[in-house]
Every structure is written in structure tokens, then in C-alpha cells.
Design a protein around this nucleic acid. Structure first.
Lengths: 157, 157
DNA sequence: TATTGTTATACTCTATAACTATA
DNA sequence: TATAGTTATAGAGTATAACAATA
């Protein structure tokens, strides 16, 4: 084995397909690039039971101790209704602690548990390698530029 | 009192949530930017019954007359099994013509119908406005750079 | 044997509406 | 009245396995 991945039935090695109007669409290439990142992210955290969204939520809670789930959802663009199962998943796995807020009994205060912090640290290490892998073709300046451009787009979302 | 409006619970103007490790993750920002594009794309083609994937497929077929659906799927990163319903949708709406290939009776030759071309033209116009809207904060050079960077990433997918 | 298209299935993400309990 | 969280539900996108017809 040469170590090359089996890409039969994939990639442009021997199937010249024109993209048409997609060629220059930023939206299309964003979608594909995001998909490629997502797939490699899944590989990176394989075995942890984590997914992009869960790592995102855990990261937000860790950075904002006591935050409630509505605020987490707003930060990540996740609807309240969809947050419920996600937070349940993290609480059931003892990665997040959920306590009724003493100041507003409608809401919960969320905090990352010890196990949750360990999980986040592990994922962080894996994700760093994943990002390095996916951005191998980009210089440091390119990566900074890319981040900057993406954030400008997000601002319009 | 200052007369400031209470914006608690909404909009990022008054809810300082730290992103933690997400802050500098290209994958995270790709996901958000792609999501923002997807949502605005949906708005742009509202009333046409089209979606990102369908426009993508139509575009590929238009640019590659007689292509079979497996090749379309490979070009777009869509699994064969998932192509079936999508192509059916386009054929049922008379946007795509599907004929058994005379050279390989396992496969179909796909072509865009007149109605399909009209639809594609309409979507093209709408999508151009949508892209202009989403990329308003970027200079022409920025847009070219962004496309270039995204394509470098896709190549690793 | 390999490939094209197909069916069946399942999981995730996303979206909306209606409900509760608090404020 | 408004907000935090919940439930139920539905539409999409994506993934795999197994099958028939054809190459």
C-alpha cells in the first residue's frame, strides 16, 4: 500500500465534470468546505461520542460558567426547542451540571463538570490536529485572512 | 436613567457570551458562515420550490448534458442512494429529462428541459443578488481570496 | 466481479407551534 | 405579557446495507 486513500468514485482524477454556475459561487464552496470540515471533525473525535454541536455547546458553557441554555443557543444559532435534547445529552453523560437558577427559577445555570472539562480538553487536542490537517494547504496569513473573511460573513447572518 | 432599551435575551448587542475555544476555529466559522448563506439562499429562491442541492444538481446537469446521476452525485458529494429522490423530484417537476442510456442500460442520461433551463436562469439571477448581499462587506479581492482559500480546503475533503 | 440505480432505514440538524411555569 | 424551558412533530441532509439489472 502506498498510503494513498482510495478515492475511486470520488474526486476529479478521471471524471471531468463541469460545475456550471456553481464554479464561482461562494455559498457553494462554503457548503463543501464546511462539509469537508465536518466529516474530518467527526473522524477527529471518533470514540468520544462527541459531535461538532456538542463540542460547541461545551465550549460555550466552559467559557461562560452559569450560563443558561437559551443564551448558549443564541450564541450558536440553535433554537431553544433544539437545545433541550442537546443539553440533556450532555447532562446525562455527566459532562454538564444543570441547576435551577436561584435568581430566576425558570432557567437553569449550566456548568461544565470535571469530566466535561476533561472531555473538552481531549476534544481540543483532537480538534487542533484536525484543523491543522484541514488547513495544511494554507499559510498562517491565509488562515488569519480566512477567519477574518468568515467572520465578516457571519455578521450578516 | 439613561433611557437605554432593554435588549436582554436577544441580539448580540447586549449579551456578551464568550466563544471559548471556538473563537479561532476555522471549522466553526465555516459552519456558521455556511449556515448564514444557506438561510439567505432559501430566502432568495423562495417561491421557486428550489433548494441549494436542487440548484446544484440542475447546474451540474446543465453543464454536462447526458451525465448520469452517479457522476452528478460524485461531483456534489452526494451519495448514490440519496440522489434517487432528488433526481425524481426534478424529473417529476419536468425540470430534468431522464432517459435510459443507449450505451449502458444500467444508467440514465440526464438533461435539463426547457423549463429546467428557465428555472436555472431564474435561480441564477436570484442567487447572484443573494451572493452580492452576503458578500457586501468584502472587496472584490477579498471575494477572490475567499474562493481560492475555500477551494484549497475542499481539495482535502 | 464491479457498477448503476434502487429501496429501506436511521440519525442528525433544523424549524414551528403549543404548552408550563415562572417573571 | 414576556421569557425559559419543554414537548411534539415534520422536513431536510446524510449514512449504511442489501438488492436487481447490467456491464
Amino acid at each position: 500500500m502506498t498510503g494513498e486513500q482510495d478515492r475511486s468514485g470520488e474526486r476529479d482524477g478521471a471524471e471531468p465534470i463541469a460545475l456550471g454556475m456553481l464554479e464561482n459561487l461562494v455559498g457553494y464552496h462554503l457548503r463543501r468546505a464546511s462539509g469537508a470540515f465536518g466529516a474530518d471533525f467527526a473522524r477527529a473525535v471518533e470514540g468520544t461520542g462527541m459531535r461538532q454541536v456538542l463540542v460547541g455547546i461545551l465550549s460555550i458553557i466552559a467559557a461562560n460558567p452559569g450560563v443558561n441554555q437559551g443564551a448558549v443557543g443564541r450564541a450558536l444559532g440553535i433554537k431553544r426547542a433544539n437545545m433541550v435534547a442537546l443539553i440533556n445529552e450532555l447532562v446525562d453523560r455527566d459532562l454538564v451540571d444543570r441547576q435551577v437558577s436561584p435568581t430566576d427559577r425558570r432557567s437553569f445555570e449550566l456548568n461544565v463538570t470535571k469530566a466535561g472539562q476533561d472531555m473538552l480538553d481531549d476534544c481540543n487536542r483532537r480538534v487542533e490536529q484536525h484543523e491543522a490537517r484541514m488547513l495544511a494547504a494554507l499559510s498562517k496569513t491565509d488562515r488569519e485572512r480566512l477567519l477574518d473573511l468568515l467572520q465578516k460573513i457571519e455578521a450578516l447572518g
